[in-house]
Design a protein around this nucleic acid. Structure first.
Length: 425
RNA sequence: GGAGAGUUGGCCGAGUGGUCGAAGGCGCACGCCUGGAAAGUGUGUAUGCUCCAAAAGGGCAUCGAGGGUUCGAAUCCCUCACUCUCCGCCA
């Protein structure tokens, strides 16, 4: 959620940004409404505060009168207080109403896009920020897509997963399971080496946490919800890990704060079925190593590029063909100011699969998190939050299986061999 | 899951209806003292909103969260969350 102040101070940029997100003029007018509501809010609050000040003052007078035995005067004052109170209750109700209307409108406004974000309405309009280097791999004619390889080598049992849980819950076994574990270890080790503190967070979160990182109310339908205990299954480790910093005031010298964590991720993906979601392409449960940074506003874009470089390093070391996209306005997430997506080339399917998304949220999440830092003068400001997948496993596995297949088995990427204990499936 | 006890500022801890944003201590910051340090000593030390052009300085709110009683609530009542102890269950 953006601060009203940001909307007021950057009104034109905000409007431009909403336009890039393909908002119509009527919808964009919400920002004027917000500014208007905020002005009203201030006026009502000032009045209400004055009335309350009067009430507080009278109350203490009543106290004094009772103490000095002037009961009659005290009772008379009480009547006066009752009148003011009646009025202040009206103001109070008005303030509550205005505040909640303001809040609801604010919640509907997505983050202000970074100026570099291209206009565009869908994924077709994303900018290829860094195209794939060299030629794309071409497989032999009998090359198999990963779901067939998974079956052939007994790595993943989709049917069994569907039997036990439902469609979209793959069951890994044997070397498939081992490959999964190796990738997790490798990614976590690389993140640790890059200075991220490793976290094992809760996999279910409460409403406050989901709200603070912006999953609520925006993505409510995407999360599994445990009604009995009022908890949400995490759609990404971003949620519990970023919430480590909720309600914190840190020192400027604490920057950058770097966390990494491996978690399963749970996504309902309601309504997505069909060929393009076959196999591991889109599932309800997948594993992911996430990297999160809390950074000074002046440095957050440098940090964003560091994180992009970290992901690139991982993909390079796995020798997977990839490209980097700068998401256009229409495709950039609600909470993000600038997002780079990484796609790997799935050679048997002959398509690109998204395996990482690295974003700078600027103060959008910090506002909800109430995550501030003190500057040299002791003044408080919202920090910037960033995160990225490094990496999302399921699709990486799909890609490794397809791209590394040979006539007599699947070779394993070199960097994984020491984690796997074998170099071929 | 059952029974009981708790939740106060960065931390410890006092406060059971009025002048309490909150005693005292610790910590921290700055100063004095010192050759330097320790000890001692003085001052300061929450967050959000708001008024004011700004600073200075006001006002409102916040003592786990939300509601209620009252002219007035950290203090009384209700609901919820969390922590601790005992019992039960258990990887």
């Amino acid at each position: 959620m953006l601060q009203v102040k940001i909307i007021e101070d950057h009104l034109d940029e905000i409007k431009e940004s909403l336009k890039k997100r393909n908002w119509g003029d009527t919808d964009i007018s919400v920002v004027e409404k917000i500014i208007d509501l905020n002005t009203k809010r201030k006026a009502v609050q000032t009045e209400l505060d004055q009335e309350k000040a009067k009430l507080n003052q009278l109350s203490s007078e009543i106290g004094n009168l009772f103490k000095s035995g002037k009961k009659d005067e005290a009772v008379a004052l009480k009547d006066e207080v009752a009148k003011i109170k009646l009025k202040s209750e009206e103001q109070d109700a008005l303030l509550t109403q205005i505040t909640s209307e303001l809040e609801n409108n604010l919640l509907s406004v997505p983050n202000k896009l970074h100026p570099s974000v291209p206009a565009g309405s869908s994924e077709e309009d994303n900018e290829i920020y860094k195209p794939h280097q060299g030629d794309l791999p071409v497989l032999s004619e009998n090359a198999l897509p990963h779901w067939e390889l998974a079956e052939k080598y007994n790595l993943i049992d989709f049917k069994l997963g569907a039997f036990i849980a439902g469609s979209g819950f793959p069951l890994f076994r044997g070397k498939g399971s081992r490959l999964q574990r190796a990738l997790i270890s490798y990614f976590l080790d690389e993140a640790s080496n890059a200075g991220y503190e490793e976290i094992v967070p809760p996999l279910l979160v409460n409403e406050d946490s989901a709200r603070a990182t912006g999953q609520l109310p925006d993505k409510e339908g995407q999360m599994y919800y445990v009604e009995r205990d009022d908890l949400y299954l995490i759609p990404t480790a971003e949620v519990p890990i970023t919430n480590i910093m909720r309600d914190q005031i840190i020192e400027e010298s604490d920057f950058p704060i770097k966390f990494t964590g491996y978690t399963p991720c749970f996504r309902r993906e309601a309504g997505s079925y069909g060929a393009h979601v076959k196999g591991l392409n889109r599932v309800h449960q997948f594993d992911k190593v996430e990297i999160v940074q809390i950074e000074h506003p002046d440095k957050s874009y440098d940090t964003l590029h560091d994180m992009v470089a970290h992901v690139e390093h991982l993909l390079n070391s796995l020798k997977l063909p990839y490209r980097i996209l700068r998401l256009c306005g229409g495709d950039t997430g609600f909470t993000s100011a600038l997002t780079f997506d990484f796609e790997v080339y799935s050679a048997a399917q002959k398509r690109w699969l998204e395996v990482s998304s690295v974003s700078n949220f600027e103060t959008f999440q910090a506002n909800r998190l109430k995550l501030r830092y003190k500057d040299g003068d002791g003044k408080k400001h919202l920090a910037h939050t960033l995160n990225g997948s490094a990496l999302a496993l399921a699709r990486i596995i799909a890609c490794i299986l397809e791209n590394y297949q040979t006539e007599d088995g699947i070779k394993m990427p070199e960097v994984l061999v020491k984690y796997l204990g074998f170099d071929k499936i």
